[in-house]
């Protein structure tokens, strides 16, 4: 989609803890809105984002099964949280704690998706990085993308069953800051 993508720099950038990167897409995942923080951190202008698929900022070191889980969950009209590594226009990378929800019109129909991305908590991020390395390893052992995703989903499900949690409980359990009693 974007032939001008710069090579990865391996440089990590971040944004303010009091900021939220906001975007909205239509039902196909085409960007319909991006806030100024999105523009600043990703390095794209509004006009470069609107009408583009959201995977514009996808980083290659993200396990594909995370996005499969994301879309599967959204199709059920449920919210989902995920720690995601994004790539900026210039090849830099930034971690976000993404919260994606369906957007409903006043009649209750899903009209698109909304994403709020926050600076991730370090205690959660350390665990997530370890997990994603595992998932990427599993994914790349398989002969094709579909098999890789299936193997990763199975692995994730095994971990969740062992922990006695569903994915939502798991993702909130990763940081002490995402508990009910947290004040920061």
């Amino acid at each position: 989609m974007n032939p001008t993508k710069a090579p990865l720099t391996g440089r990590e950038i971040t944004f303010g803890e009091d900021e939220i990167i906001v975007s909205k897409t239509d039902l196909r995942g085409v960007i319909t809105y991006a806030n100024d923080v999105f523009e600043r951190v990703s390095g794209y202008a509004e006009s470069e984002l609107i009408g583009k698929p959201h995977n514009l900022i996808r980083h290659p070191e993200m396990p594909a099964c995370v996005f499969r889980l994301l879309w599967d969950t959204l199709k059920q009209e449920k919210e989902i949280f995920a720690y995601v590594l994004n790539r900026a226009r210039n090849g830099d990378e930034y971690w976000v704690f993404a919260h994606v929800t369906p957007s409903f019109d006043l009649d209750g129909n899903v009209v698109g998706y909304h994403s709020n991305r926050r600076v991730p908590y370090p205690d959660a991020l350390a665990k997530v990085k370890t997990l994603y390395v595992q998932l990427l390893g599993i994914e790349r052992r398989e002969r094709d993308r579909a098999a890789g995703i299936a193997a990763c989903m199975a692995h994730l499900q095994t971990q969740l069953t062992a922990a006695g949690m569903d994915y939502s409980e798991f993702v909130f359990s990763l940081s002490e800051h995402t508990s009910l009693g947290a004040v920061a």
Binding site: D18, F97, N116, E169, V183
Partner: peptide, 17 residues
């Protein structure tokens, strides 16, 4: 979530002033 009897999901405070 609370209405479902599940209490793992707080309101995230970051970004809310």
């Amino acid at each position: 979530e609370c209405a479902q009897g599940r209490f793992h999901r707080p309101i995230l405070l970051r970004g809310l002033p």
